[in-house]
Design a protein around this nucleic acid. Structure first.
Length: 591
DNA sequence: GCAGAGTGTCATGCC
DNA sequence: CGGGCATGACACTCT
């Protein structure tokens, strides 16, 4: 990009023409005309200052609202939650949509604490999701000063909509109510943290060891979930947020502009959540950015919807009350694994019956291979969620298949192996990776069938202590325990086998290198040997000629030369040379 | 259809 | 003694 020195005074027409020409040259590079417009920049600076002032005002208002909310809260002694005193809609059962904006935000958010997505992260997500509606209001209280207000990003995204921001301090009532609900949730979160509602240890573990990906839920939360959330409510949540898993957040934020115009409380509810659902079913999810996926993953991992619970939240289970995801996925361990294992009771042999858990590997393969295989598609859709998976939309038992069985399943997948900290397999071809993931999903499907409340990654990769701690928090029956042990054993052994083969290949390669170097050394030594032999022959030749020369110079008393057949020259170690008669020499030798 | 590579799994031994 | 690792062997899938 060319640099242009801006004139200190107003540019002349000639300058403007020149700038115009330069701009036309740069327009291909994405430069805007305003880049060269001084007055525009000055306006921008003024607007920026204006926004900052508004920002401060908003923050003050938010703090005041926070105080008011705190004064309105009371402690529910049964659940340990803080609930608003005069709000009847905080009951766990949303009969209708009378004021449901509060319900899905209250209960789930109070339960998600120890989860992969902290409340602050949730609030941050909200702040990012609704930047146009209430960017400054959602940010300051929960994000703290370190998080910059999202106004800038708003400006970047939609520079032409600045006037809309100026309306924010005069938010209409219902939106204020929504914000109060969000604040409410935030306060609940903070208070729950303080009151020890969430067990401190797991939370610390999640933060310190970064096992949040492995531990999408907590035991106490599980029980609370089942205790406090009737199926109807879960179903409602499911309907609203199940599809939330992959919605396009950008679209969501755009939608809020509509909310800004019309809403009343009921309309807000009707418009907001069903809209999410509509967005999801529209299939826009398939093209979302990775960052969005991550956020949604976190969303889906939120407390209320735990990995296996989400699976169990499938409409068949909830609305119809059938407890058998098992029948859908007739589980069995890899016939070899559990059945052959004498020390663990195989699910196939479990008291629950053969039909309940027993699907063989071949069965699983058939499931995976079938075009309508919901599990494999599903897993490919949410590889990072496994087996926590996203909630399934009500009424459509195989969501991915319903959406686009071909397209969705063929989407390039992320690598759960890497995400789970697996050592990289020695042979990395894409197809093999995919196949490995498909095979990995077998255990995940088994875990789903037995409703193991942990992710397979967690089962395999957690350290022993954390693993035991995790296990102790859930009441698992014998087949579940056996399956979890087998999953862990197989996972460990799989990694070990990969490492072993990798080492073996490295050993082979090292030996080949060593062999090559040895061959080179052999060639060198052979060449050296021949050189030494030639040198030795040369020395012998020189020695014999020297010998003859010296011997020929020797004369006896009569001046006659000694006969080489009768005498020979011998030298001692001190360098003396003697003329020795051969007979005498042989005698000496014989002696 | 066969051969070979790659991978998962099991059994076993060792630490 | 239990858990993990290493490795040979086998089965399976894919090319």
């Amino acid at each position: 990009m060319m640099e242009i020195e801006l004139p200190k005074t107003h540019p002349s027409q000639q300058d403007m023409d020149l700038i115009d020409i330069l701009w036309r040259q740069d327009i291909d590079l994405g430069a805007g005309r305003e880049v060269f417009d001084l007055s525009y920049r000055q306006k921008e600076v003024q607007l920026q200052r204006q926004r900052e002032l508004e920002e401060e005002k908003r923050q003050q208002r938010v703090k005041e609202q926070e105080k008011v909310l705190l004064s309105q809260l009371q402690l529910d002694e049964e659940t340990g939650e803080f609930v608003p005193r005069a709000t009847p809609t905080t009951s766990a059962l949303p009969q209708a949509c009378a004021a449901p904006a509060e319900i899905p935000q209250n209960v789930p958010f109070t339960q998600e604490d120890g989860d992969a997505m902290s409340f602050d992260e949730c609030m941050q997500l909200l702040a990012e999701t609704f930047p146009l509606v209430e960017p400054a209001e959602s940010a300051p209280p929960c994000l703290g000063p370190s998080i910059p207000p999202s106004t800038d990003s708003t400006q970047i995204m939609m520079p032409g909509e600045i006037p809309m921001l100026t309306q924010n301090p005069l938010l209409p009532g219902p939106l204020d109510q929504t914000w109060m609900d969000l604040q409410h949730c935030l306060n609940l979160q903070e208070m729950l943290d303080m009151t020890g509602y969430i067990s401190a240890a797991p939370a610390a573990d999640v933060q310190e060891t970064n096992y949040s990906q492995y531990m999408p839920d907590l035991a106490d939360i599980t029980s609370n979930t089942t205790d406090m959330c009737p199926p109807e409510y879960i179903n409602t949540y499911d309907g609203a947020f199940s599809s939330v898993v992959p919605p396009d957040l950008n679209q969501m934020s755009l939608k809020t502009t509509d909310i800004n115009k019309t809403f009343e409380p009921d309309e807000f509810c009707d418009m907001f959540y069903p809209d999410l659902e509509a967005k999801v079913s529209s299939g826009s999810v398939l093209h979302e950015e990775e960052r969005t996926v991550v956020h949604l993953d976190e969303l889906s991992n939120d407390g209320l919807l735990k990995p296996m619970d989400l699976h169990s939240l499938s409409p068949g289970d909830i609305s119809m009350g059938k407890p058998e995801a098992v029948a859908e996925f007739p589980d069995s361990d890899s016939g070899l694994s559990l059945d052959a294992s004498p020390k663990t009771s195989s699910p196939g042999k479990s008291p629950c019956g053969e039909g309940s858990f027993g699907f063989s590997d071949s069965d699983m393969d058939e499931m995976e291979g079938s075009p309508g295989s919901t599990e494999s598609d599903y897993i490919e859709m949410f590889p990072l969620l496994e087996p926590s998976d996203g909630p399934q939309p009500p009424g459509a038992e195989p969501p991915p298949a319903g959406q686009s069985p071909e397209g969705a399943a063929r989407q390039p997948k992320t690598e759960p192996a890497e995400a789970s900290g697996y050592s990289k397999p020695p042979f990395t071809k894409d197809k093999q990776k995919r196949r490995a993931e498909a095979r990995l999903s077998r255990d995940e499907q088994r875990a789903k069938a037995l409703r193991i409340p942990f992710s397979v990654d967690a089962i395999i990769n957690l350290p022993v202590d954390d693993f035991n701690e995790m296990m102790s928090k859930h009441q698992l029956d014998e087949p579940q325990l056996a399956l979890v042990r087998d999953i862990r054993r197989r996972g460990k052994n799989k990694v070990a086998a990969q490492n072993c083969r990798k080492r073996k290949m490295e050993n082979i390669m090292g030996l080949e290198c060593e062999l090559d170097s040895l061959k080179e050394e052999k060639v060198r030594l052979v060449r050296e040997k021949s050189e030494n032999s030639a040198s030795l022959r040369q020395l012998k030749k020189q020695l014999s000629s020297l010998y003859l020369e010296v011997f020929g110079m020797l004369k006896d008393e009569q001046g006659r030369p000694y006969s080489p057949s009768d005498y020979s020259l011998q030298h001692t170690s001190d360098g003396s040379v003697f003329l020795v008669p051969r007979i005498k020499k042989t005698l000496v030798k014989s002696n």
